[in-house]
Each structure stands twice: as C-alpha cells, then as structure tokens.
Write a protein that binds this DNA or RNA. Structure first.
Lengths: 107, 107
DNA sequence: GCGATCCATATCCATATGGCTATGGGTTAT
DNA sequence: ATAACCCATAGCCATATGGATATGGATCGC
C-alpha cells in the first residue's frame, strides 16, 4: 500500500529534489532550464525529480511552447502539517506561536 | 553534506519506520519486543529502524535490565515544522487554525 | 550455574534509487 | 526547410536501502 504520507515524505527526502521544491516555493514559477542551471545535476535528472514531485502533488506544470513551467503547490503540504500536528498534539491544543510549541515539545 | 532536514525526512520516509515512530507517539514508551510484535518485520529489522530514528533524534532509549525502552522525542520534529512553516509562509502570517491555512494554500 | 530471553550487530541478498549519456519529439528561429 | 533549442524518456550503472537469518553479549528465572 502506498499512502499519501509515503509519497510526500519520500519525495521530500532527497536533498536535490527538496532543493528544487524549496526554490519553487521561494522564487515562484520556473522552467526546467532555469532549475537545471542551479540544480547541480543534469537536465534529465531534474526532469525525473520533477516527475516525482508532480506525482506527490507538490508541483504543477504549465506548457508554453517548448518551455515547461513548474510551480510549487503548497496545498500538497497539508497532509504533512496534519501529520506533525497529530504527532505533537499541536492542533488539539491550539498553540498560536512557535515558542509555546517548542516549550511543550521539550518533553 | 548531511543536513538535519535530510536525516529527518529520510527517517520518516520509510513506512515501517514511520509506523514505529507513530506508535511511540501515540502509546508512549515501548520495548523492542513490544514494537516487534506489531511491526510486521523481524526483531533485527526493528532494531535497525530504531537506530535510524535515534540518529535522527526522533527517539530516545532507556536501558532497564535486558529490556530497552524506546520513546518518541517530539522536539525532534521542530525542524520539520519550521520547514513547512517557511515553505507555506505560515508563521509570517500567524494563522491560528488549520482552516485558514488550508484556504491560503488553495493557491 | 544454566537455560531462556531480550536485544544489537554482522552478513547477505534483492530491489530501489539517483546519477549519467543518448535520443527523440515538439517548437522556435533563421 | 533546416538548424537550434527545450524538455522528456529510455537505458545503463553504482550505490543505498530494507528485508532476512545467524550469532553473540547481557540479563533474568530456575
């Protein structure tokens, strides 16, 4: 069985792949060429990583001529936030800032 | 280079390993035997997974006679929460419930 | 003391994974 | 039309990974 959490965590576990996603989050829509220029790996590798991110729902692609524009899909992170929330009991207790959360997490 | 996010995401990417951590979060401290009984894999495999979780800081172990008790270390999830927060712009905007966050994440 | 129990480590194996190069389809430019 | 460009797919390969079994050290019960 392949759960949503599986695909999400696995997609974000690889440093190269996570870096791609982070860049799309920070800098917005980018083409494969743009991403490849700073990824440190070859273009086919970037494409393969983008496939994985897309299958996890973390990115969207938009075709425009011979360019393919990719953008981050933040809503795909919802299960991850929900999971950590469940683990830490975050939402049940409705902490409203990081300080309190960290305090609670110190045991 | 091996970052904190790497070890965290990688540790949680495996379903068996994540299940172990989830169980420790829900049910509290457990021995290796307890965990093995429901893990669906052999005892050595459970031990190996626990090593990975421990190296990621996600669990603590306590030795008591021939038993080893493991427990979840919630504070280890902090970097993960921080990361998702940065990606979604959560903390900058100080949303106070999941509804608002989800709404914002719908593009 | 001795066997049984608990757990960690060692070894092995099959598969998954992440990188590369080669290639080809589609698109733009000349 | 043809060349150049962008990107995806197809192989290929080395390594990482998750599983199993075998074993051994430490501890408890008898």
């Amino acid at each position: 069985m392949q759960t949503t959490h599986d695909t999400l965590f696995r997609a974000l576990a690889d440093p190269t792949r996570r870096a791609l996603f982070e860049r799309l989050c920070r800098d917005g829509e980018k083409t494969v060429g743009d991403l490849t220029a700073r990824a440190g790996v070859s273009q086919p590798v970037v494409s393969k990583h983008l496939v994985v991110l897309k299958q996890a729902g973390l990115v969207r692609d938009r075709h425009e001529g011979r360019h393919t524009h990719y953008s981050a899909q933040l809503r795909a992170l919802a299960p991850l936030i929900d999971w950590t929330s469940q683990m830490t009991g975050f939402w049940e207790n409705r902490f409203d800032d990081l300080e309190n959360l960290l305090k609670r997490m110190d045991q």
